[in-house]
């Protein structure tokens, strides 16, 4: 390991040896350190799952909420205090399955948070059922004849909804992952990064090697601001999966769209005084 990282935490990790989550955790700690963040300025929010245990293993503020509900508390936190760096770490099931509705609408809402999805294409914590990103034909203990449903395409979905930052990376390429994470944290608005994270126990198809063999880096001259081209990229999978920033567009983030809050200090720093509200009684006289 590199030098000591201020985000290091001594809590014992409950992940399996060899799990992709270990490398992913190192990646986010490196990202935050290199961005010059301090632990107290960062909040890591999550839902429930293997991935969602991450807040326990990093020295920062954490909010480990409910399965599928990683996004809404993160929004509340950022709205309350825009000075905090708010990131979400949660699984593919948590983010796209149980929490799918929040995913869709938060792209529209565009709160300035980064969402790192640990995509192992499986439900890890509950022992190997299909997730929304599990490919058709993949046999599991529940999907005994192979998955019938078409896989969910988070990249294409996010682009189609107008997401301002859509990226994919692989935890096996640490440098690429850290660069992508940094760009996501620096993006002003909702940034989605789908991160391939092998589950060594329950996904014997999409293994470390499988990802290594299937991903390729976006071409040097790739233009992430071309939406149609990005959409086309997002459809590639079986014959090679592009990694990198697939789509990027600057647009006002949620709090910047509320004209009367634009230049205000963070809501949490406001002085509260009941008397300030007295004027709202006027209309009842």
């Amino acid at each position: 390991m590199d030098q000591k990282n201020i985000f290091d935490c001594s809590e014992e990790k409950a992940w399996c040896p060899g799990c992709g989550n270990h490398g992913l955790l190192e990646g986010i700690k490196q990202t935050l350190q290199e961005l010059g963040k301090e632990p107290h300025e960062v909040v890591v929010a999550s839902g429930i799952g293997q991935a969602a245990k991450l807040p326990h293993y990093i020295n920062a503020n954490g909010f480990n909420g409910l399965h599928g509900r990683s996004i809404p508390p993160a929004l509340g936190i950022k709205i309350a205090n825009r000075e905090l760096t708010v990131i979400i770490h949660s699984g593919d099931g948590d983010s796209y399955g149980e929490g799918g509705n929040h995913f869709l609408h938060n792209v529209r809402r565009n709160v300035d948070i980064s969402h790192f999805v640990h995509d192992n294409q499986i439900y890890g914590l509950t022992k190997g059922q299909a997730s929304p990103t599990t490919r058709q034909g993949h046999v599991t203990g529940i999907q005994t004849e192979g998955v019938h449903l078409q896989p969910f395409n988070p990249i294409a979905t996010a682009i189609s909804l107008g997401c301002g930052f859509v990226a994919r990376t692989f935890m096996g390429d640490k440098e690429h992952m850290v660069e992508t994470m940094k760009a996501a944290v620096n993006h002003r608005g909702y940034a989605l990064v789908d991160i391939f994270q092998p589950c060594v126990v329950f996904n014997k198809i999409n293994t470390f090697k499988w990802y290594k063999d299937h991903v390729y880096k976006l071409e040097e001259d790739y233009d992430p601001t071309d939406k149609i081209a990005a959409f086309q990229k997002s459809l590639e999978f079986d014959d090679g999966i592009p990694i990198g920033i697939i789509y990027k567009e600057e647009k006002p983030a949620f709090l910047d769209t509320i004209e009367f809050l634009k230049d205000e200090k963070p809501l949490v720093d406001r002085d509260l005084d009941p008397k300030n509200a007295e004027m709202f009684m006027d209309e009842f006289y």
Binding site: G65, R69, I71, P72, P73, I79, A80, V268, F280
Partner: peptide, 26 residues
């Protein structure tokens, strides 16, 4: 009043949002 009134995508989001905001101190 300079407050945020947010119509959430569903009630699950509404309450989780409020919990996050309260955790962060408002």
């Amino acid at each position: 009043a300079k407050i945020v009134v947010e119509q959430a995508e569903d009630e699950i989001a509404a309450i989780n949002l409020a919990i996050g905001a309260s955790y962060a101190g408002i």
